[in-house]
Simulated assay, not measured.
Amino acid sequence: MTTSEVIRIWELSGVERLHLTTDTSLIFKFAVKPFTTEADILINLAGHGIPVVAVQAWAIRGHTLGMLMEDLGVPVRTATEKDAATMAALLHATPVLGHLDTFDEEALTSLPERGLAALAALQCQGRFLKAWDISRALQRLAPCAKALAAGAERPPFGVCHGELHPTSLHLGTKGTRLLDLAKAFNGPGLLDLATWVRDPCSCPTRASEPTHPRLHPRWRPLRRGESSRRASCRPVGIGLALHLGRPLVPRPGRRRTPRPRDRRRAPASSAGRHRRRHALDVVVIHDLIDQRPYEPAGAA
């Protein structure tokens, strides 16, 4: 090796590009718990024909994973929703992997209560003391979790990425590859939809809007027998993405008459604003239970 180039480093993992004397390069990634299973996940998915980044070598020393992977180079473009849908369909068709956490109907039903218990334990340690938004969301979700989780095991149910967003897909000269699968789990494919629309890179928000997920937006599922004339054509993962594709309609509320200067743009911007009010997805609660470093805005 001649030189190394830091690509990204944070508290629990890091990625570097190693330039070798043979005029080639490899990617070195290290991670600590709970992200030490990524090499095994990548190798298993590659064996099922999923286009993931190739692992050349890996080892675990103590509580730290080290991997050497192929260098895919610079992406030729940013991933789009169509790219994400194509790759997600392949991934979700993969049979469940036994060593991954499984979010079936039973697990999803118990998730809010488990999340509240984990949050209480962290607050006893002096952490997440200002996480009122997460606590309130979980308290409101717990009574209806069973109804929301009903039918969660209908297809597509398989391996989910867990962090599906534009930087998780590499579109280069070698084709499209999936990256960063350390948080993969078995569950309904719509949970990957929730992480895609929640990510600010895939669905940008205005600077004045909060970047953390919201549980109850101004949309509700279409009721049985109700006209779909006002329904949204894009189910954006509302309510833990467990409405499973049901169309959405605006909740009743006070309507503001547009001022003359914004009257022309009101319909388009209003629709976009509602679509950007994202759900609190299941991955955030799972991170909380695992005590992973997710900190809400303003948390101590």
Rank of each mutant, 00 (worst) to 15 (best):
P156R: 11
G187D: 14
E163Y: 02
E163C: 11
F157L: 07
F185Q: 01
E163V: 02
S168C: 08
T173Y: 05
L171H: 14
F157P: 07
L169D: 02
P166D: 10
N186L: 09
L169P: 04
G175S: 03
A182I: 02
G175T: 11
P156E: 14
G172R: 05
K174M: 12
L179R: 00
L178F: 00
R177F: 09
A182V: 03
A182C: 10
K174P: 00
C160A: 10
E163T: 10
P156K: 08
G175F: 06
H165D: 12
P166G: 06
G158K: 06
L169I: 15
T167I: 04
K183L: 12
L171M: 12
G162Y: 06
K174F: 07
T173V: 13
P166C: 10
G172W: 07
T167E: 14
F157M: 08
P156T: 11
G187I: 12
T176C: 15
T167V: 08
G172F: 07
L178A: 00
L164M: 14
A182Q: 11
G172P: 05
P188M: 12
E163S: 14
L179C: 02
L181Q: 01
T173N: 10
K174V: 12
T173G: 03
K183P: 00
L181N: 02
F157Y: 15
G158E: 13
L178P: 00
P166R: 13
A184E: 07
T167H: 14
G175V: 09
L181V: 02
G162H: 06
L171C: 14
L164W: 02
L171G: 11
L181G: 02
G158H: 10
F185K: 01
S168A: 15
L169W: 05
F185Y: 15
D180L: 04
V159F: 06
F185I: 05
K183F: 08
C160G: 04
E163H: 09
T167S: 14
P188K: 13
H170V: 04
G172D: 08
H170S: 12
P166V: 09
D180C: 05
D180G: 04
V159D: 00
H170F: 10
P166E: 11
G162N: 04
T176G: 10
L171D: 08
G172V: 02
